[in-house]
């Protein structure tokens, strides 16, 4: 009985994440369009995109590793979703905790590296080595945030964090207790989501090089799915750590959409950073803020 319940949750959580992620992609595109004074895509555009990508012929495949790479990228996020508690569904949250999550979020980038590394395209390799560097850039402040937060709540269990914040009201929310760490997280959020202005390694559409060139048909579809999960994951993590998570979807959903929307709308105003600059930027300001924030909460 208990096992069956868990199984349903494990299935349901990624599906929910996917659906919400699709909505987030749509929202992000709309925001981008508004800022650039365009109308933006129709509501069902993300779904059309996925259908289109999967129905297209896969022009080139670079063997087993290529496919494993994409599976790892998507699979890593699917596994991460089961660790993220959402209203009504806890999944594996009380078994994994923030530390496991931090490790899980590393997998997709590694999967990409594995897959794209297999391609003959030298520009793909360059793109991926940039991606890995960018990951390193945001990971260090991200870990700083995670462990500052777990220090304050005294636990790494995400479900427990939510309970604490829900029981003690807004005053106990992470964003009130540790504004500096929250700000740090907000700064690195676009990088975690792999979005503007830290996405030069992906360089979608505009540049005819980069890893995307090697990704046609189902691979591109896989990456698109991954993007949905990516946005969702980033939003939920931030909400869980700093905004009290949610007991009901009705309060939870606005929070996660807001978390994704705010940095997106600001980020679109900036030009893309070069990878070296990302490293410099991330290790300077968010790091500094994070360390100060840590010093404040640890006293």
């Amino acid at each position: 009985m208990h096992f069956f319940e868990l199984l349903v949750e494990l299935l349901l959580m990624p599906i929910l994440a996917f659906v919400i992620g699709l909505a987030m992609v749509l929202m992000m595109r709309r925001i981008g369009a508004r800022i650039q004074r365009r109308v933006g895509p129709p509501v069902l555009q993300p779904i059309y995109d996925i259908i289109k990508l999967y129905s297209k012929e896969t022009q080139i495949s670079h063997g087993l590793m290529h496919e494993i790479g994409i599976i790892m990228a998507v699979g890593g996020y699917i596994a991460a979703e089961t660790l993220l508690p959402v209203p009504g569904l806890d999944g594996l949250a009380d078994k994994g905790g923030a530390v496991t999550l931090a490790y899980m979020l590393m997998i997709p980038a590694l999967g990409m590296a594995l897959g794209v590394g297999q391609c003959a395209n030298p520009n793909g390799s360059i793109g991926i080595s940039r991606a890995l560097t960018a990951m390193l850039a945001y990971d260090i402040p991200f870990i700083l945030v995670i462990f500052g937060v777990s220090y304050v709540y005294g636990t790494t269990n995400l479900a427990e964090m939510i309970t604490i914040q829900q029981q003690q009201g807004v005053a106990s929310w992470g964003i009130v207790q540790m504004p500096l760490l929250a700000l740090t997280a907000l700064l690195i959020l676009p990088a975690i989501m792999g979005k503007h202005p830290f996405e030069i390694y992906v360089a979608p559409a505009e540049i005819a090089t980069g890893p995307m060139v090697e990704m046609s048909g189902k691979f591109m579809g896989g990456l698109f799915v991954m993007q949905c999960f990516q946005l969702y994951t980033a939003g939920v993590i931030f909400t869980t750590l700093f905004l009290g998570g949610g007991l009901y979807w009705i309060t939870f959903l606005p929070k996660i959409f807001l978390v994704v929307a705010i940095p997106m709308s600001v980020a679109y105003l900036f030009p893309r950073y070069r990878t070296e600059d990302v490293l410099r930027l991330m290790w300077k300001w968010p790091m500094l803020l994070g360390l100060i924030g840590l010093a404040v909460v640890m006293k």
Binding site: V99, A102, Y103, M106, A109, L110, A113, L114, G117, L132, T133, M135, L136, D139, I140, I143, I146, F147
Partner: peptide, 12 residues
Amino acid sequence: LAAASLEANYLF
């Protein structure tokens, strides 16, 4: 944890 992400970087 930071070391893990460094490891990820150089090994990959």
